[in-house]
Simulated assay, not measured.
Amino acid sequence: MAYGISTYAYFWRISARAPRPLTLLDMFQDTRDLCGEVFQICDYPDIETYDDARLADLRAAAADLGLTLELGTRGVRPAHLLRYLDLAAKLGVTLVRSMTNTADHRPGTDEAIALLADSVPAYADAGVTLGLETYEQVSTDDLLTVVRAVDDPHFGVVLDPGNSVARLERPADVVRATAPHVVNIHVKDFAFTRRDGWVGFTYAGCPLGEGLLDHQGMVDTVRPDERGIHQIVEHWLPWQDDGFDATARLEHQWTQHSIKTLKRSK
């Protein structure tokens, strides 16, 4: 099992608000500098436009830094998933994360099962694992119905218990329910804070260990060390009132803190 970082840990530094958005190579180097071992290129659609030479350069750069690459996308349409399987082959990736819904496609459970039955065997044949992430648009019960129906060791769950809170699912319940099927973990902490005047709450990220995520309980339940499951750092960092520099600095500090915390807990 290894620790790593996702593009979501660089959310603001690769955004249009950044004076010079970080490139994938910048993020690779930063991950190595922080002693990360895995980099997950997640929801980064530009990767779909890269030609074979550029993909080969990315693969070589990651290898030179000693990084394992993973991919992340959205959707379960076979053509799209097979496109990512092709990208996985060219990048040396053995895990692809996806989500059931996209902006223009929200399949029900039966449709998702049928679509994935067309794609998962190709992933299995290539030795690539496909994982669907837990999140609020799809109940954990429905997600597990899909995973169990497709029933392939190369298909499972990317566990991110913070996402499901918006569906009024308790993180601990999500962890327990999905544990046997988890193939990847997104590690981000989260907390509620009262809004001004105590009128409602803000639900946002916080440094690992300071919020509601029971990380140790999740590790004890899922047993990533024993099962070779990578833990990938992400954040829900709100934009800071002091502007980009303050936001970018805090984003880096949160990532550094998360990696150090994961290393200490190993």
Rank of each mutant, 00 (worst) to 15 (best):
Met1Ala: 10
Ala2Asp: 03
Ala2His: 07
Tyr3Trp: 13
Gly4Pro: 11
Ala9Pro: 06
Tyr10Met: 13
Phe11Trp: 09
Phe11Gly: 04
Ala18Gly: 04
Ala18Trp: 04
Pro19Phe: 03
Leu22Tyr: 09
Leu22His: 05
Thr23Glu: 05
Thr23Tyr: 06
Phe28Met: 15
Phe28Asn: 10
Thr31Cys: 14
Asp33Glu: 15
Gly36Ala: 04
Asp43Tyr: 15
Asp43Leu: 15
Asp43His: 14
Tyr44Ala: 11
Tyr44Arg: 13
Pro45Gly: 14
Thr49Cys: 07
Tyr50Thr: 05
Tyr50Met: 12
Asp51Arg: 07
Arg54Lys: 12
Ala56Trp: 01
Ala61Ile: 09
Asp64Gly: 13
Asp64Cys: 11
Asp64Ile: 11
Gly66Phe: 05
Thr68Tyr: 06
Gly72Ala: 06
Thr73Gln: 05
Arg74Met: 13
Arg74His: 12
Gly75Met: 01
Pro78Asp: 02
Ala79Thr: 05
Leu81Gly: 12
Tyr84Asn: 12
Tyr84Ile: 09
Leu85Ala: 02
Leu87Lys: 01
Val93Ala: 07
Val93Met: 08
Thr94Asn: 05
Leu95Glu: 03
Arg97Leu: 13
Asn101Asp: 13
Asn101Lys: 02
Thr102Gln: 02
Thr102Ala: 00
Thr102Glu: 01
Ala114Asn: 10
Ala114Thr: 06
Leu115Cys: 04
Ser119Met: 06
Val120Trp: 01
Tyr123Phe: 15
Asp125Trp: 00
Ala126Gly: 00
Gly127Ala: 12
Gly127Tyr: 02
Val128Asp: 00
Leu132Lys: 08
Thr134Lys: 00
Gln137Tyr: 02
Val138Trp: 10
Asp142Ile: 00
Leu143Met: 03
Asp151Ile: 05
Asp151Lys: 01
Asp151Arg: 00
Val157His: 07
Val157Pro: 03
Pro161Met: 06
Val165His: 09
Ala166Gly: 02
Arg176Asp: 03
Pro180Gly: 09
His181Phe: 12
Asn184Lys: 14
Val187Met: 09
Arg195Ala: 15
Val199Phe: 12
Gly200Thr: 02
Tyr203Cys: 03
Ala204Met: 04
Ala204Ser: 15
Ala204Cys: 07
Cys206Thr: 15
Leu208Glu: 11
Glu210His: 06
His215Trp: 04
Gly217Tyr: 02
Asp220Lys: 04
Asp220Ser: 10
Thr221Lys: 04
Thr221His: 12
Val222Pro: 13
Val222Ser: 08
Arg227Tyr: 08
Arg227Lys: 14
Ile232Gln: 12
Val233Met: 05
Gln240Leu: 15
Asp242Tyr: 01
Phe244Trp: 11
Asp245Tyr: 00
Asp245Glu: 15
Ala248Asn: 06
Arg249Glu: 13
Leu250Phe: 00
Leu250Ala: 10
His252Lys: 12
Gln253Lys: 05
Ser258Gln: 02
Lys263Arg: 14
